[in-house]
Design a protein around this nucleic acid. Structure first.
Lengths: 205, 205
DNA sequence: ATCAAACTGGACCGCCGGTCAAGTTGACTC
DNA sequence: GAGTCAACTTGACCGGCGGTCCAGTTTGAT
């Protein structure tokens, strides 16, 4: 629905600024360590005021999430509507292995962003609202990945605690150590290890 | 070497304050979310000046590491000099499973601290010094755990990329999602899942 | 009693995430 | 083209934090 005249899509300058901010964030992320990128820097690099950044993305966390969602979009589409083995149609085992490979790939190409995301849960502006917050609300991309893995695991081996196993498999990609391996160009090694681990889980009793 | 008269062990008041600071940190960690505990609060709760905290521990990260090392000491000793299956003597497979159980236990009893540790790599005071920093230097407790797991894995299944697999197995314990499971009292579930995963890895091709 | 080194504490610095009120601009109507 | 108004932009501002610094205090050996 590109042209819906009634429901206020987005003003032209707003869209331009949103893109500029995301681009600037990408660029900073590529050049500097994520924890030393400030929102002021992002704003300056994008050529907008700091207030604009917060107006558009709400918080540091929101900005990182938006960027991550953009980066993960292709994978999301490949999984939901693309051809096998990633998309629907292939047997769960092959879909899972292909999906894990794809995730390692996305993460490897966005290590800085992953690190920044893991680092963005600071200085909570929320007054309270925190009875161990909802797993699905936090970080939509993670929610989608986790749900997909859990579904495939459950389909292939019903006896498993698929939810927890999915968390364990995904955990590697948030871990500092593994992110560091990826930074050192050991992406293939990590992919192979994840592969081995998943296959073991799918095969063994 | 508890009494070495020549090498300046530690002054009495310094030792007293160090303990007070660690105690205060524990207490704050137990009552508040880790990301909203400031060093000033720690100092105030310990009844010392902020300067003292930084003098003793160098930085937020150093404080958290020291506390973690203290909490992990019992496990370290059990592994190096205790009775099987944790200590030396049992076959690698049993040692590994016992060790993983023990780690989940330690982590479950120190979730706040784990979260704080993961969160402490901010505002790096280092001027530069950062060609993808040394894996072993960062967080001694992690280094020990990782090394032990890798050794046991390698002993039981020489074909494996034990280093990477050890990182993947440990990653779960730094992940927000799994930490949240532990907070919700699902410790047994996590332990069982880790167990299953490790057994699969040890058993399968 | 003396003294140097170790230790202490809190004022101070620079910076950061986030807010807000006032001004600006784009889109739509007539 | 003029008018209208809500969406949007902005940067000064706020509270607070991590970390530094050094004048003053304490310790323990001599």
């Amino acid at each position: 629905m590109p042209d819906a005249p009634t429901d206020r899509p987005e003003r032209a300058d707003a869209a331009r600024n949103r893109r500029a901010i995301l681009r600037a964030t990408e660029e900073l992320l590529a050049r500097h360590r994520p924890e030393q990128i400030s929102m002021e820097q992002v704003a300056a690099a994008a050529g907008v005021g700091k207030g604009t950044v917060f107006h558009r993305f709400g918080s540091r966390m929101g900005l990182m999430e938006a960027l991550m969602a953009e980066r993960a979009l292709a994978l999301t589409e490949a999984v939901t509507t693309g051809p096998p083995p990633l998309g629907p149609g292939a047997p769960p085992r092959e879909r899972l292995l292909a999906f894990l490979d794809a995730i390692v790939d996305v993460v490897a190409r966005n290590k800085g962003l992953m690190a920044a995301l893991g680092h963005a849960a600071s200085t909570a502006p929320k007054p309270d609202v925190d009875p161990t917050e909802d797993p699905r609300t936090a970080h939509p991309v993670y929610g989608f990945w986790h749900g997909h893995i859990a579904d495939l695991l459950a389909a292939h081996r019903p006896g498993l605690d698929a939810e927890t196993q999915a968390h364990l498999l995904l955990a590697g990609l948030q871990s500092r150590s593994v992110l560091r391996l990826l930074e050192q160009g050991e992406g293939e090694r990590v992919a192979a290890a994840v592969h081995t681990l998943a296959e073991a889980l799918l095969t063994a009793p």
